[in-house]
Design a protein around this nucleic acid. Structure first.
Length: 990
RNA sequence: GCCUUGGUGGUGGAAUUGGUAGACACGCAGGACUUAAAAUCCUGUUCGCCGCAAUGCGAGUGCGGGUUCGAUUCCCGCCUGAGGCACCA
């Protein structure tokens, strides 16, 4: 009887679905365990073999926990709102709801084939009104709250109003209680907006013209949009924001209570970017104006040689001198002309002197004030005190403009490079002389505070998160505008459903498509929609109680399931989703809706599965396009346009071995170089232009190249070819390629041996890179159990690794070998009721221990190996005993559920193996009563000795001491030290 | 430049963190069964040397040092891959 995995897997998947084997209840005596995957965005491309890596890991862990007696919540859903579906709608005219639905069905079909233990009754879809009703509701809670800095928590806005009514305000806005009461409704609302956790304001945002929307900071990478790579510019717009900066400190503190990787904590810490320093006020000569700078190094105050302010600051005009006015104006125009992109790409030193001087408060020295684009307006006060002897950028700036540098570091500063140390001893620093910089910080700040011109100040790099998009496919804001004041909709009016639209093009003045709908505008509803991360910031709560119509989830449910015990997903969400959901959780906690303030107890980052891409070398000749080159008819036919600027004529694909050959020809030494060079070029040229035989005479070629009437260069492009056309020896099946793919239909493939060799490169798996492997294909060929185990066997989950289908045979063989412990091709059933021997029990219990340990520490690859060892050992000892096999099946269930279920049933068990109990490890079967130990002297093995394990170290010492041979080895001396090494060796130190 | 991680056979990776390096698997080589193929099984496989033989000899975890009876593991200095941050004062 064969291992018919297709039949078996279908049968059990259907059965599990039918009886809802994975349905989980919120009421249970068992301890709970919440295992969560980062839910996918259902893209049109479907899943590739990289996606399920994390899903399989979490599935193994939740199945394992279930066997261990836990009530396990393991749900799945879809992050369905977002830009790509809308872009697709614009291009193809298909409503996002339809394409999303299709994609979800496709995802679901792929997921179902892998045999996951999700409770599908809890599926969520963020784009369904039943779901986003509660996204809107939570938004309203944020809108109706403020962050009380003294209590360090969010509170209902009503408490703030009460404070204003009784005490007035001394923070962001300054007014008395009487004034507050006298304010109009509109004035009051405008003030309150400055405090709300979700607020609307005018601000500089990242505007992406191509996408027609703003983007959050983490959605912009190197000045272009993360999705699509379109340019992003700064623009002032009315926007919704989340006041995440208020939570900066708590987001940092919270990191200490969660189990995230160091790298992840580091990334979040950097993103938040807390820095502790001071603000210092400087007087300006001949002006009443005072400037304030932010610095983390007040200790270097005597090393300040100039000030730099950001070009955007409006007080520039207050201080600029008449002589410098023109130069400053010119510089400001120059700065305006530079995009963010340019500023980031080329960091050139530029700046202009304002003609004004600040005064050092301690020694009265006059310090020139400069303007430069390297100082950012948005951070600190937008002005810095520059200390060139201690700061790289200040040093470069000083050198560039010839500003003299004061050395306050003594020998620690050599004049040629700045030194940012805090451990040097100060010189040229008046009352600080002789002090270590580190210690001087406090002294200076104290003095500044005393003088009333400085304060301690903490700054964060993180900004408030832009929370609105001028797009269609997102949650509508439950907000109406009346006379410029935002009013929340009432709870009974939720959900505010997304209306159908005819067109997805933007509305007037940078507004979203919703602004094109008259009824929408008539109701004065907000026309922006929420960003992609709104729905994903709280979805883990909805799984707890997904069908609740009275609340986002009942308090009883959130109290029971509590934090996510294990959260698995990629690192790419480090500063986006993971920060936002942490913030939402904290706010919900503060407002009393849930009982925990960190959502994820443990985070496991799965590594990327990379693909191997194949490339063929395309060699051709390029001409500058603006040159007039006459093409023959033949050339036109083979004309291939690679890039805008260049044209390749008669490009030919050259096998890698030929490329090597041509390269070596190029690199011949001495006077042969030039000749070889020419020869190489000549050969290529003749291939390409003349179609001649390569062995053309050298003299001819030299002439040809020199006589070339136009500038040309040889180019070697690497052209992707689909990986499935390349075999394991890197040979390309170009005949098939030419037949099946249009791009290559007229291409020539040249090689030395007749086998066309491609080069390979490891890159991210993606459709555009022609290197994706679809899990469906693998499952069709080997089955889901093999697929699951192989994904785990590839290597540690958190490490990125290349997908290589070759090795899958080994895992498949393992499952077949396991099958043969139960069924023989000839004899049929071979298992028996025999009593297990000591050796067989040893194999079993060793495996139990190993699987338990490895699963607990997420070392799934070594667990798979342990199964292989176990089955090899059982096969070697011809053990077909039911007693042993049954236990092995339970262990295997999380990893290969289908085959385990099938064989479990075959053994005549009643009930499912997924409901079995994880076997208990018993040491007595594994440990021995006595063992042979090697005795070594200084690590060199000299003899073996058998001792009882109870003997422990003392016994060993006696045995060894008594041994004449040992004494002889040591020349009669007593050993200095005897080391008993963990069940392994006895080492004697003479 | 800064931060975080890695570097082990032909390949993916073990070694549960100071104790017999290379488990397990792929690949490769040889063999058995077969008319043949597939499937399956067996043997070998870190490198080098000696040999009829082996429980033989030597080297070996990116490179160079150090601590230790003993180092893939700890310390110092380099080289290098990957990821993140990057005018944040």
């Amino acid at each position: 009887m064969d291992y018919k995995f297709r039949e078996i897997e279908k049968k059990w998947q259907d059965h599990w679905a039918e009886i809802k084997a994975y349905k989980v209840s919120n009421i249970s005596e068992k301890p709970k365990c919440y295992v969560l995957d980062m839910f996918p965005y259902p893209s049109g491309a479907g899943l590739h073999v990289g996606h399920p890596l994390g899903y399989i890991s979490s599935d193994i862990y939740s199945r394992y926990k279930r066997l261990k007696g836990f009530n396990v919540l393991h749900p799945m859903g879809y992050d369905a709102f977002g830009l790509p579906a809308e872009q697709y709608a614009i291009e193809h005219g298909i409503h996002p709801e339809i394409s999303t639905e299709n994609n979800i069905n496709n995802f679901r079909a792929q997921l179902d084939k892998i045999g996951f233990s999700y409770d599908w009754d809890r599926e969520v879809n963020t784009s369904k009104p039943e779901y986003y009703k509660w996204t809107q509701w939570i938004f309203l809670q944020l809108f109706n709250s403020w962050f009380n800095r003294s209590a360090k928590k969010a509170e209902p806005i009503a408490t703030l109003v009460k404070i204003f009514e009784t005490e007035g305000s001394t923070t962001i806005n300054i007014f008395t209680a009487q004034q507050w009461i006298a304010f109009s409704e509109k004035e009051q609302q405008t003030i309150l907006m400055n405090f709300r956790l979700a607020y609307c304001g005018i601000g500089e945002v990242n505007w992406c013209e191509a996408l027609g929307t703003v983007l959050a900071n983490d959605e912009v990478v190197n000045g272009v949009s993360e999705r699509g790579g379109h340019p992003v510019v700064k623009k002032k717009l009315r926007q919704w924001y989340l006041r995440i900066t208020e939570y900066a400190d708590r987001l940092l503190e919270g990191l200490q209570t969660v189990d995230f990787s160091d790298a992840m904590k580091e990334m979040q810490t950097n993103w938040i970017g807390k820095s502790i320093g001071a603000e210092i006020q400087f007087e300006i000569s001949n002006s009443k104006f005072r400037m304030t700078v932010y610095t983390t190094r007040p200790d270097t105050i005597f090393g300040v040689d100039f000030m730099v302010i950001a070009p955007e600051l409006d007080w520039i005009h207050e201080v600029v001198s008449t002589e410098q006015k023109q130069a400053v104006e010119e510089y400001l125009i120059y700065v305006k002309s530079r995009s963010d992109r340019e500023r980031q790409a080329e960091k050139k030193i530029s700046g202009v002197f304002t003609g004004a001087y600040a005064v050092n408060p301690f020694d009265g020295r006059e310090i020139p004030i400069w303007i430069s684009e390297y100082v950012l307006a948005g951070y600190g006060t937008g002005a810095i005190m520059a200390v060139p002897c201690g700061d790289e950028r200040d040093f470069k700036f000083a050198n560039h403009f010839g500003i003299p540098i004061t050395n306050i570091l003594g020998d620690a500063f050599n004049g040629t490079e700045p030194n940012a140390t805090k451990d040097a001893i100060l010189t040229n620093s008046d009352f600080l002389n002789g002090m270590v910089l580190r210690d001087a910080i406090k002294v200076v700040v104290n003095k500044l505070e005393e003088m009333g011109i400085g304060t301690r100040k903490t700054n964060f790099r993180m900004r408030d998160a832009a929370f609105s998009r001028q797009r269609y496919w997102g949650e509508p804001f439950p907000i109406t505008w009346q006379d410029g004041v935002a009013f929340p909709l009432g709870e009974t009016e939720l959900p505010l459903t997304l209306p159908k639209v005819e067109s997805y093009s933007p509305g007037p003045e940078g507004e979203g498509p919703l602004a094109n709908i008259p009824e929408w505008v008539a109701k004065e509803l907000e026309t922006n929609t929420m960003p992609g991360y709104a729905g994903s910031s709280w979805y883990f709560l909805r799984y707890m109680d997904p069908h609740n119509t009275d609340a986002f989830a009942s308090r009883q449910a959130t109290d029971y399931w509590n934090q996510v015990d294990l959260y698995i997903g990629g690192t790419e969400h480090a500063v986006g989703h993971l920060l936002y959901s942490r913030m939402w959780t904290k706010a919900m906690y503060d407002l009393g809706f849930i009982g925990f303030d960190e959502p994820f107890k443990k985070l496991l980052n799965q590594g990327m599965i990379t693909g191997e891409s194949a490339f063929a070398n395309l060699i051709g000749v390029t001409f500058a396009k603006n040159l007039k080159v006459e093409f023959t008819e033949e050339d036109e036919k083979n004309y291939l346009e690679i890039k805008d600027k260049y044209t390749i004529i008669r490009g030919k694909y050259i096998s890698s071995d030929l490329v090597e050959f041509l390269k070596t020809a190029y690199y011949k030494i001495d006077n042969e170089v030039e000749a070889a060079h020419m020869e190489t070029r000549g050969k290529i040229l003749s291939y390409l232009l003349e179609g001649l035989d390569a062995d053309i005479k050298l003299s001819n070629l030299v002439g040809k190249i020199e006589m070339s009437p136009f500038p040309m260069t040889f180019v070697n492009y690497k052209i992707r070819v689909p990986i499935e056309y390349v075999n394991s020896k890197n040979e390309l099946d170009y005949e098939r390629l030419k037949l099946e793919i249009r791009q290559f239909i007229n291409s020539d493939f040249l090689s030395q041996s007749g086998n066309f060799i491609c080069s390979r490169e490891i890159e991210k798996m993606s459709k555009s890179k022609l290197n994706v492997v679809n899990p469906n294909d693998i499952i069709e060929k080997y089955g889901a159990d093999t697929f699951r185990m192989y994904e785990m066997f590839l290597g540690p989950v958190d490490q990125s690794k290349p997908w290589d289908t070759k090795g899958i045979e080994g895992v498949h063989r393992f499952l077949k070998k396991l099958w043969r412990l139960f069924y023989d091709d000839v004899k049929g059933k071979v298992w028996n009721d025999g009593k297990a021997t000591q050796d067989e029990l040893k194999i079993l219990h060793r495996t139990i221990k190993k699987i338990e340990e490895d699963t607990e520490r997420f070392s799934f690859n070594t667990a798979v190996s342990a199964f292989m060892v176990c089955v090899n050992d059982l096969a070697d000892s011809k053990c077909n005993k039911k007693e042993i096999l049954e236990q092995v099946l339970i262990l295997l269930t999380p990893y290969a559920p289908h085959i385990s279920e099938e064989l479990w049933a075959a053994l005549g068990n009643i009930g499912l193996v997924i409901d079995a109990t994880f076997p208990k490890f018993e040491a007595k079967y594994v440990t021995e009563s006595s063992k042979e130990y090697p005795i070594s002297i200084n690590g060199k093995v000299r003899a073996n000795i058998t001792i009882s394990l109870d003997a422990e170290q003392a016994a060993v010492e006696q045995i060894v001491l008594a041994n004449e041979t040992v004494q002889k080895w040591l020349e009669g001396k007593a050993p200095k030290k005897i080391i008993f090494v963990k069940n392994r060796m006895i080492n004697i130190v003479p």
